[in-house]
């Protein structure tokens, strides 16, 4: 892999010490800037968690009070009394995990084929994937619902899962990654008499581990967040997902903010923990695959 951009040659006269000092200084600067950004990200969360412990009167007081007078669990009790939180949480987790996994299984091979292979109808098929990204869901939702009814899937998890297996988003994301992989390794597999399948399985997939982990996560979160489609295709309350449950604290004329924040807090913590486990695959895999450099 050669880069053509010329780098200005400069005589090697720098002293190592000054370089190191400057590096340390820039590290401190980076840390400072990143911390500032992190505070901006975290402040709303702090507010969310604190609100979860406030009484409605405290939550709506103006100017705001940061700390509740008494750390009360009443909002959490009310949350569990009003919606079957645990069941909704469980439903959301397993359907999102399953959908994300099926998503990758269908999208990774397709993305690879679109990025690397040549075949008739390629543009058309890839175009349909892109098209699915560009039409607003507001108008396709009714036709899809009618289809689900025809198939007899209404109020079943099938209706939730099957239409989400294929995703233009995931295909496009992985397509971009496969495209930027160096060809040389796969070519050598092919020249050695290996099939495209071997090239995909033993070269491209391992190399794209980081991208696949990212795509899986995005897909998981996409489903974790979605509420309109689950609400429409599922009817039984024992099948309901978490976002729909949280939404029920928003009434026509009022929102119960403290209970909503209790729900948001509880639903965030486990995903953060899950994310911490997943995230090391997001970049490390790409480094350790040994394909680069």
């Amino acid at each position: 892999m050669t880069r053509s951009e010329p780098l200005r040659p400069e005589p090697l006269t720098r002293r190592d010490a000054s370089l190191k000092a400057r590096a340390r200084g820039s590290q401190a600067g980076l840390l400072g800037l990143l911390t500032l950004g992190a505070v901006a990200i975290l402040l709303p969360f702090v507010w969310m968690i604190l609100t979860a412990f406030k009484t409605p009167a405290e939550a709506y007081t103006w100017p705001p009070i940061w700390l509740p007078a008494k750390w009360s669990l009443a909002n959490f009790t009310q949350l569990f009394d009003t919606i079957p939180f645990a069941r909704m949480f469980f439903n959301s987790v397993w359907t999102s995990v399953l959908i994300a996994s099926l998503n990758i299984l269908s999208a990774a091979p397709a993305a690879y084929a679109f990025a690397r292979l040549r075949f008739p109808g390629q543009g058309l098929f890839f175009g349909s994937h892109l098209l699915s990204l560009m039409i607003p869901w507001q108008v396709t939702i009714i036709p899809v619902f009618l289809l689900i009814r025809q198939l007899g899937w209404y109020d079943s998890f099938t209706a939730l899962i099957v239409p989400s297996i294929a995703s233009g988003f995931t295909v496009f994301l992985l397509f971009q990654f496969f495209r930027s992989l160096p060809r040389s390794l796969e070519e050598s597999v092919l020249i050695d008499g290996g099939s495209w399948f071997t090239a995909l399985r033993h070269v491209a997939l391992p190399a794209a581990k980081g991208a696949i982990a990212a795509a899986w996560l995005f897909s998981f979160l996409g489903n974790w967040q979605s509420f309109i489609w689950p609400l429409i295709v599922l009817q039984s309350s024992e099948k309901m997902l978490l976002p729909v449950g949280l939404l029920s604290f928003q009434n026509q004329y009022s929102v119960n903010i403290p209970v909503l924040m209790a729900g948001a807090t509880l639903s965030t913590l486990p995903t953060v923990i899950a994310y911490m486990f997943v995230q090391r695959y997001l970049t490390d895999a790409a480094i350790t695959s040994g394909l680069k450099g």
Partner: peptide, 15 residues
């Protein structure tokens, strides 16, 4: 929930 009641209703009745 109120925010999505009518959309759910429309889809269900249409379906």
């Amino acid at each position: 929930p109120w925010g999505v009641y009518w959309q759910k209703a429309a889809a269900m009745v249409a379906g």
